[in-house]
């Protein structure tokens, strides 16, 4: 098991190198540069700016400088937010995204697993249909519709929640629900499918034959196996939800990391764009590893060598 984990961690290095290189090349291939502006700069000033950020060096040298930065975990200065380093930007914004994403992940797991399991246990009942219709709606309605709908209801009609900004717990209610809704819906559907699959398996029939109550059958035996597809989904989902969502952050004006994914690309803020891309990549790799490890605990049939 340990050697498996070590091997996986070692494999992350070439993966990250490829992602870093591709991201670098793509970013530099995009037309326009970080120092272009609507107001053309006098050549002397443009030259000074390029020298400051080493943009006057040949591309290969810049690439090596960038790789060496990654090795030292230093992504360099932001090209747009002056006097701020990429590390600092991430350190400042990530905790907000982690808080918001952590709560949303938690909410979507609880709600998704619960209603998915109930729907499966009551398969083809009106309850099942109702839950699945809601879940389908949750997947298909985009967050930029759910967010404003919540604002209309809770802010403008009921007047119980603040409209935006980071602040007390009440500020988090709408963003967390908005962020969690599509994930909860997806988890519910995965859970229901997984549960239906498991409930027809011989070991469940055996458990029932032993005379266990339906509740015990579902919670002690079926759930553990039925949740596997959900766990698989959780790998990429966690990386996505924890690094922030630009839509939710913009609608509720939250200081998370999500907006940097989009803004840095538009502004050609190369260093920030590459920094957040690599952060996302690392989180994705780590969560996928965690998911694979957790299989061994959840399903006795899976063993790693």
């Amino acid at each position: 098991m340990l050697s498996y984990i070590l091997r996986r961690i070692l494999w992350m290095i070439p993966t990250l190198w490829i992602v870093a290189t591709l991201a670098f090349l793509l970013m530099r291939a995009a037309p326009g540069g970080p120092f272009d502006a609507e107001r053309k700069l006098p050549p002397s000033i443009e030259k000074n700016i390029k020298a400051k950020y080493h943009y006057d060096e040949p591309l290969t040298k810049q690439y090596l400088r960038y790789l060496w930065g990654i090795v030292r975990l230093d992504f360099g200065p932001s090209l747009k937010l002056q006097g701020r380093s990429v590390n600092e930007i991430i350190a400042e914004a990530l905790p907000y995204s982690l808080t918001l994403g952590g709560l949303a992940l938690f909410l979507s797991l609880v709600v998704g697993v619960l209603i998915g399991a109930i729907a499966a246990a009551r398969q083809n009942s009106p309850l099942d249909y109702a839950v699945m219709v809601v879940a389908l709606a949750g997947i298909s309605i985009p967050t930029f519709v759910i967010g404003p709908l919540l604002i209309i209801v809770f802010v403008f009609i009921l007047r119980v929640l603040p409209v935006a900004q980071w602040g007390g717990p009440s500020h988090l209610v709408m963003p967390v629900i908005t962020l969690a809704a599509p994930f909860a819906a997806y988890i519910a559907r995965l859970m229901r499918a997984g549960m239906l699959d498991v409930l027809n398996q011989p070991f469940i029939k055996a458990a029932r034959a032993k005379g266990l109550s339906e509740c015990a059958v579902i919670y002690r035996h079926a759930l553990k196996v039925a949740i596997l597809p959900v766990v698989t989904f959780l790998g990429p989902a966690s990386a996505q939800i924890l690094t922030g969502s630009v839509v939710v952050e913009k609608i509720f004006n939250l200081p998370g990391l999500g907006r940097f994914f989009v803004n840095s690309a538009f502004n050609r803020d190369h260093t920030v764009a590459l920094g957040v891309a690599l952060l996302y990549c690392v989180m994705l790799l780590v969560f996928n590893l965690l998911v694979d490890i957790s299989y061994a605990f959840l399903d006795p049939r899976i063993r790693y060598k």
Partner: peptide
């Protein structure tokens, strides 16, 4: 997960 969630919620709210 619940404990982590609550901890996060309280940590985030001044």
């Amino acid at each position: 997960v619940f404990i982590v969630g609550v901890a996060l919620a309280t940590a985030g709210c001044g």
